Simulated assay, not measured.
Amino acid sequence: MAPVIEKPLAARVQVIAHRGASAWLPEHTLAAYARAIADGADFIEPDLVMTRDGVLVARHENEISGTTDVAMHAEFAARRTVKHIDGVEVAGWFVEDFTLAELKVLRARERLPGLRGVRHDGLYPIATLDEIVALAACESAARGRVVGLIPEIKHGTYFRDIGLPMEDALLDALATDAYMRAAPVEIQSFERGNLRYLDGERRRRGMANVRLLQLIGEPHEQPYDVAAAGGTLNYAEMTTPRNLRGIAGYADAIGPPARMVVPLAPDGGLAAPGTLVRDAHAAGLEVHAYTFRPENAFLPPALRAGDDARRNEAGSLAEIRACLAAGMDAFFTDDPAVGRKAVDEA
C-alpha cells in the first residue's frame, strides 16, 4: 500500500533560517542573517537572551564562551563563574553578567569549528534584537518581499527568576517598531507557561501578526517550567492527540525535531512518517520541524557521503523532502539556500 501523503496546513511552506545562514557564517550575527535573507529565507531566527542592563541580544545560550572570544579578554577573566541553568551546572561567562556596552567589545566565533572552520572568527559583534529588526526591515524594502522574524525566548524561567523577564520586553520591542507591527512574527519557547502568558498578551494588545510556536524537545525531556514546578509532563506526553489539542488553545504551531516527523529506519535511512504531523494538523496546529543541516555529521547514516565534515547538499535535500512529503508546514535549516531549493524544486 502506498504511503499516505499529508498535506501542510500552511498555504506556503516557510523556510526558516536557523540562527541565520549558520552553515556559512557564525550564528546570530548580522552577516549570517543578511546571507540567509539573500539565500531566500522567509524567516530569520534570533535566540534571545538578556544583558545585565535589560537589552535583548541574540545568542544561542546565555553562556558565551563557545560563541565569542570572551576568554581572550583579560578584563573579563574574573567574570567566569558556574551557574545552574535549567537544572544543569554550566561553567563560563554569561550574558546577564555583562552590559550591552561590554558585550559589544566581544566578537563572534564559530560554534562548530571542526565542521565549519574559523575563517570568520573575530569579524562580527553580538547583535541586538533592535539591530536584527532593522536589518529585516531594510532587506525587506530592498528586495521587495517580506522577511519574517521568529525569535526564541531562551531559558525564560531562569531569566525571570533573576529579575530579567524577557516576554514583555520582546512584545514591547515588536509593538514599537513600524516594520514589526505588520511583518509576520512567531515567538518560540520550549517552555509552556511563557507561551500561555504571551497568548493572553498578544490578544490583549491586539497583536494580530504575532503567532506562537511550542517547541518540542526530545521525548523524555520536560519543559523546564514544568520540571521546576515539580510536574511530570514530558514532551512525549505533550504530543498525544489530547495534549496537542491543549497546545492549540494557546499556540499556532509545534516545533518538533525532524526525527519525530520522519523517524530513522533500522538500516539508517528514513522510515515512513509517524503520526505526529497528522495528529497536529487534526488539532489545528502547524508543524515547524528542526533542524536541517548540510553536513554529513547531521544526516541520517544512509544519506551520508564522505566524512562527517563534508557538505552533502544532495543528502540534505533528500532529508528535507522526506519531511515535506510528510506534510510539515515550515522548517529550520542552517543553509537556507538548500531549504529554498528543496521547497521550490519539490
Rank of each mutant, 00 (worst) to 15 (best):
G206M: 08
M207W: 14
N209K: 09
V210K: 05
V210Y: 07
V210S: 04
R211G: 14
L212F: 08
L212I: 10
L212M: 05
Q214T: 07
I216F: 11
I216L: 09
G217L: 12
E218T: 00
E218N: 01
P219Y: 10
H220G: 01
E221W: 14
Q222D: 00
Q222P: 04
A228C: 05
A229H: 06
G230A: 08
G230W: 14
G231Y: 04
T232G: 01
T232H: 06
L233Y: 01
N234T: 14
N234A: 00
Y235F: 15
Y235H: 11
Y235R: 02
Y235S: 07
A236K: 11
E237F: 00
M238R: 06
T239F: 06
T239G: 02
T240E: 11
P241A: 03
P241N: 03
P241V: 06
R242N: 02
N243C: 04
N243P: 05
R245W: 02
G246T: 13
G246S: 07
G249Q: 15
Y250V: 13
A251S: 13
A251C: 15
A253W: 10
A253R: 11
I254C: 10
G255Y: 03
G255H: 03
P257R: 09
A258S: 05
A258H: 03
A258T: 05
R259L: 08
M260H: 09
V262C: 08
V262H: 12
V262F: 10
L264N: 02
D267G: 00
G268V: 13
G268P: 12
G269I: 02
G269K: 01
L270K: 04
L270A: 02
A271T: 02
A271C: 02
A272M: 03
A272Y: 01
A272P: 01
P273Y: 06
G274H: 11
G274W: 14
T275N: 10
L276Q: 08
V277P: 06
R278L: 11
A280K: 12
A280H: 09
H281D: 00
H281I: 04
A282F: 06
L285T: 13
E286H: 12
V287R: 06
V287A: 02
V287S: 01
Y290A: 13
T291P: 08
F292S: 03
F292R: 03
E295W: 10
N296T: 12
N296L: 09
N296Y: 12
F298V: 05
L299M: 05
L299I: 10
P300E: 05
P300R: 10
P301Y: 04
A302D: 06
L303V: 14
R304E: 07
R304D: 07
D307W: 05
D308R: 10
D308P: 00
A309V: 14
A309F: 09
R310P: 01
R311I: 12
N312T: 10
A314M: 10
A314C: 04
A314S: 13
A314K: 13
G315Q: 10
